[in-house]
Amino acid sequence: MANEKPPMVEIKDISKSYRRGSQIIPVLQGITFDIAEGEFMALMGPSGSGKSTLLNLIAGIDKADAGIIRIGGVDITTLTEAELAGWRAANVGFIFQFYNLMPVLTAFENVELPLLLTPLSRKERRDHVEMVLSVVGLADRMDHYPSQLSGGQQQRVAIARAIVTDPAILVADEPTGDLDRASAEDILSLMDNLVHRFGKTIIMVTHDPRAAEKAHIIQHLEKGVLSAS
């Protein structure tokens, strides 16, 4: 049964190293794994093990040295920079540890950002933004600036921004890393909801075992090599 549908994310033999001066630092070595559609995967591992690097490769904001990254059937390693930007806008939602909202824009405007690159009308954009803000429970905070929101609320705005274009996969780099327990719980159940109710595929980097528990699969990255648990 599982073989009928290709996996959402297929990673084959990717490697990545950084160059620091004349020194070459290998970070990822021959990583291979798949993620099925609607899966919630946690990526754990010690600091500096390359989790963020791997996530960035999957999300198309960094380039692998070798290997294939096929997402929804598209090998993104073959795309040009410009194609990749368009591809990201349509297919990937990003959630960051520090929210990365634009401080000069309101919650509404922050969520609207990705839609500005689509042909949607003003009215359609408004409908979409209001819809996702109510999904994350912030319909009443639309006109607030990030500085007027708590960390948990800011992260919810960021999640709303990530899902407003209805991308198939969401990548989250330590989304609860900067939040207290209660806010972290909120964010995690919201993400859980996105998987179950909306069928999103989520890849989440985390250091927090309790956060990882919410995931269906936990992968460990250590010394550039992956091991499932």
């Binding site: 904001i61 930007a85 990201r88 806008a89 960051f96 990365n100 950002l113 990705p114 690159l117």
Partner: peptide, 13 residues
């Protein structure tokens, strides 16, 4: 820079 990086992430050129 992080804001510009965020905008780029979202698909802005």
């Amino acid at each position: 820079m992080a804001e510009y990086a965020t905008l780029k992430t979202l698909g802005f050129g």
